[in-house]
Write a protein that binds this DNA or RNA. Sequence first.
RNA 1: GCGCGAUUAGCUCAGUUGGAUAGAGCGUUGGCCUCCGGAGCCAAAGGCCGCAGGUUCGAAUCCUGCAUCGCGCGCCA
Length: 595
Amino acid sequence: MGEDPARARQDSHGRKRGPAGADRCPDRRAAEGGSRRGTGRQEMKRRLRAAIAAALQSESDLTEADLAPIGIEVPARPEHGDFAINAAMVLARKLRRSPREIAQGLAPALEELPEVERVTVAGPGFINVSIRPSAWRSVLIQILEQGEDFGRSQREQPREVMVEFVSANPTGPLHFGHGRGAVVGDVLARLLDFSGHRVQREFYVNDAGRQVRNLALSIDCWRRRHAGEEAALPEDGYHGAYVEELAQEMPPDASLEAIEEAAVEAMLEGIRRDLSDFGIHMDRFASERALVSAGRIQQAIGALQERGVLEEREGASWFRSDRFGDEKARVLIKQDGSNTYFATDIAYHMDKLQRGFDMLINVWGADHHGYVPRMKAALQALGQAPDALDVVLVQMVSLVRDGAPVLMSKRAGEITTLRQVFEEVGRDAARFFFLVRGPDSQMEFDLELAKRRSLDNPVFYVQYGHARLCSLLVRAAERGVQVPALDSASSVDLDRLVLPEEMRIVKRMSELPEVVRRAADSRAPHQLVYYLQELVGSFHSYYTAYGKVDPILVGEEGKVAARLVLVLALRQVLRNALDLLGVSAPERMDSLETE
RNA sequence: GCGCGAUUAGCUCAGUUGGAUAGAGCGUUGGCCUCCGGAGCCAAAGGCCGCAGGUUCGAAUCCUGCAUCGCGCGCCA
């Protein structure tokens, strides 16, 4: 505890962040001057916004705040161009002029930009801007140059983010239901990192409470039975076969405390292995017991005491969380002098703050949503802004096989483990499945569906797209077609890419940085999944449409070279996006043929 | 009873933070293999965005009420 989160930083992929990544500053790139090279979508938007701002401010005294609500978006319809700007509508009231009039006035300023091809005013006052194809094509070079860093962005104000997730009781293996929170937390962490924050992932281990004591008692019970004694399992004891197995490993003279410790250690080891095999790496396992023995609970209670938000009543100590938006006050110290769970939770969150994190994200099961207000209240009482803590609630997942519910009885120890699920359907499919819905929508996980090779299970569709691209490159090599290398790609004449389908793919690819950012900011990993499906779809469509008439690898040399640059760039984008999801990007799909 | 979440095509769900004529997959119907992998593609049909008000240039999106479903409301962990 107490280490500086800024130290020993690694990105989500376990790579040390090298100077190459740090060097990539979009602003500096832009500052290099009028070069078309490296103008990505974000840079285009920045320039459009700047042009609008300059034009407006030259003729009226508008403030930054007036300009803030101006949005630059992708129009729903392609005939509306590449960007739609709502500035005229937003400012109509303020300027006391009609939107269309304002829009007409702004158009010339935008037309002056070299990358702008056409500006039209349409509808209620939208300014529609089309960008020259050559500017779009240069995105391809940018993608190849940035490689695995394409899509990464910098933040003006990066934050020290702690993503706490899974945090399952160390009293048994991970249940399949933990899988959703695990993957959502993991991908969220990757997205936050990739979009410019500094991120640590943590698993909070409840190793001090009654649950682990119960586990120890259950083990003790089995130990006695093995020794021939009559012994009854505790009321709410643990039933799984692993309990009996653990009992056999315990030395006969082990104390209850020793059993507890050994059991927790064994359980955690299993959990670590499950997570690791599911592609999830934690930076730290935070022990509740360590917090307790370090006196952190008292410290937290003391801190609240100092702030005057505690109250003694009925022999207990209450935190007046109701003063900070919670429904009612909550007990921290019970009549019998012991702490409630809430007290240790406060201590843990305070510890996170003390370690320098300024953005706390917790991924919780939706059944814990009732705890959100009190936890936020505690942080506010400690002087934090209300949004210092963000709880992402993941809804329940029900396990289904061919549409029929898979029955489980926790009592009888019949739980389906996370491991069973990902071993049956595969890690890629399991992860993708958990990610394909928004966290707050309930979902069914159909085991048969997840294994099926159909579009119900879009991971295959996406991976196939990647494999297809790889296959194209292999085919090109076989035919002796020159595949452009990184340094020669910039000398390829990209103006040979003229098909609308090609431009569509290029524009989609350019969106990755924004998609990543938005998915991170709105805590919605599924947005990246949808993006991927659309991007891959646009490629499959292109591939099929021209496969007969004008195949990618066939034809005049310059055209083929330009298309291969497109192929290389798309492969890179797919890889980066899949990597963010923790899903593999296979070069061939032959595993399916062996089934 | 109170709180949180949900309600969008037959089904499962998106909807770029308030934008233009509402989107995808599955399913249904009808097409496309002389082709770099058809594990693919194209097209059609399918909508009172739960209901009723309100806010404004503009609402599936924001506010209020109602309905239905799910989940929470212990000095449990």
